[in-house]
């Protein structure tokens, strides 16, 4: 449980937020099931993961997604969406997922 709270605190810090966690009931989690996100293998990360990609001006989001799929050799990828049709650079995320 301490490990989970440490990881959640890491997520909070990623966006510059400090959150306190209040314990209602001390927790136990069965080590035989599930896995701590920081222990995931590369294959697992590629199945459900995020790349915060800096899309250069020029190629469309769609073209960049196709490129990401090709170089990572994964069947599915998507992006966070863009409204302006091909204007300037843009940071996009590529959640890669095979669901």
């Amino acid at each position: 449980m301490e490990e989970a709270i440490r990881f959640l605190t890491e997520l909070d810090r990623f966006v510059g937020v400090e959150r306190r966690y209040l314990v209602k009931k001390e927790g136990f989690t069965d080590p035989n099931y599930g896995k701590t996100p920081t222990a995931r293998t590369l294959e697992e990360l590629l199945k459900y993961g995020i790349v915060n990609l800096d899309k250069p001006p020029g190629p469309t989001s769609h073209e960049v997604v196709a490129w990401v799929k090709k170089i990572l050799g994964i069947p599915k990828a998507g992006h966070g969406g863009t409204l302006e049709p091909s204007q300037g650079g843009d940071t996009l995320r590529y959640p890669v997922s095979c669901r």
Binding site: M1, L8, L11, P37, L45, L46, G49, I50, R93
Partner: peptide, 16 residues
Amino acid sequence: LVLPQEYIVSHLPKVL
């Protein structure tokens, strides 16, 4: 370079 999917909800409040 590949972040766990959990990062998507970094900005949200959380419950365990």
